[in-house]
Simulated assay, not measured.
Amino acid sequence: MLFATIMLAVLFLQDTKKHTYELLHTKPMSAGKYVLGKVSAGFTVCLIALAILNIVFWALCLIYTKDSGFEVRLWDFVVSTVLYILPNMLMIVSVYTLISLIFKNPLPGVPLLILYMVYSNMGGRNAEGVYGYWGRPFAIMVRFPGQFFDTAPPPMALLNQSFLILASVAIILITMQIWKRRRM
């Protein structure tokens, strides 16, 4: 997430310079093509970095657990990535796109997304006063319970991931409207 936050600033930096921004709005380019192009480019770069990290961690798990009897499958890494990371990544890219177009500058997106990460990572107390990490609405991080071998998804995680996908689509549609409005 931190990599995406910093990398996405580069994605929009050239477009938001005064002369480039004005030139983009004079070209016969639809809002959908521009916004979806930016979102897909940012998502693809993050996806490549994520794929490299998955392969590295999978290989490290194979190397360091071969004598301990743990079964390590690449498919488990892929499924976990699709369920718990890709929706978060889509949300980060869509929020960054929205922030970049609202401010006409990608730099305000960095501290705002870092605050979003802090919100997503904060714990809280339940009704009994026990401190722990429970799902937060629209959180871009999935925290698992404290038990080391318990890999069951935390409550509300899969529902939250579904909401993140829906919210990302809504944000992308809003971003397209902002692009159209600025064009006129």
Score class of each variant (00 low, 15 high):
Glu22Asn: 09
Val130Asp: 04
Leu101Asp: 01
Thr16Val: 01
Thr26His: 09
Ala59Gly: 14
Leu74Tyr: 06
Trp134Lys: 15
Thr20Met: 02
Asn88Ala: 04
Leu50Pro: 03
Leu112Tyr: 06
Val79Met: 08
Leu53Asp: 11
Ile92Cys: 12
Met29Tyr: 02
Val130Trp: 02
His25Tyr: 02
Asp76Pro: 00
Phe57Asn: 13
Asn126Trp: 03
Ile52Val: 15
Tyr133Trp: 09
Met117Asn: 14
Met117Lys: 12
Ser68Phe: 10
Ser40Asn: 03
Lys33Asn: 07
Cys61Val: 11
Ala41Asn: 00
Gly129His: 05
Leu50Ser: 14
Ala127Val: 13
Ala49Ile: 02
Tyr96Arg: 00
Tyr116His: 13
Ala49Leu: 09
Leu83Met: 10
Asn105Leu: 07
Trp58Thr: 08
Ile99Gln: 05
Asn88Cys: 15
Thr97Cys: 11
Val56Ser: 01
Ala49Thr: 01
Thr81Val: 10
Arg125Gln: 14
Val82Asn: 11
Trp75Arg: 11
Leu60Tyr: 08
Leu50Glu: 14
Gly132Met: 05
Tyr84Trp: 13
Tyr116Ser: 08
Val95Ile: 15
Gly132Tyr: 06
Trp58Ser: 03
Gly37Cys: 00
Trp134Asp: 15
Tyr133Val: 06
Met122Phe: 03
Ile85Cys: 09
Tyr21Gly: 04
His19Gly: 09
Lys66Trp: 12
Ile55Ala: 14
Arg73His: 12
Leu113His: 11
Ala49Gly: 07
Lys38Pro: 04
Trp75Pro: 00
Leu36Met: 13
Leu53Asn: 13
Ser40His: 02
Ser80Ala: 12
Thr16Asn: 13
Pro28Cys: 07
Leu50Lys: 07
Lys104Val: 07
Gly129Lys: 02
Val95Trp: 07
Phe103Thr: 07
Ile55Phe: 13
Met89Lys: 04
Thr44Lys: 09
His19Asp: 10
Tyr116Gly: 10
Leu36Lys: 01
Ile85Thr: 08
Met89Thr: 08
Asp76Lys: 07
Leu90Pro: 09
Ile102Phe: 09
Tyr21Cys: 05
Thr81Leu: 12
Gly135Arg: 11
Arg73Ser: 12
Phe77Asn: 05
Thr26Tyr: 06
Val79Cys: 12
Tyr133Arg: 11
Val118Ser: 12
Thr97Pro: 04
Leu53Ala: 15
Leu62Cys: 05
Gly132Val: 05
His19Met: 10
Ile99Leu: 14
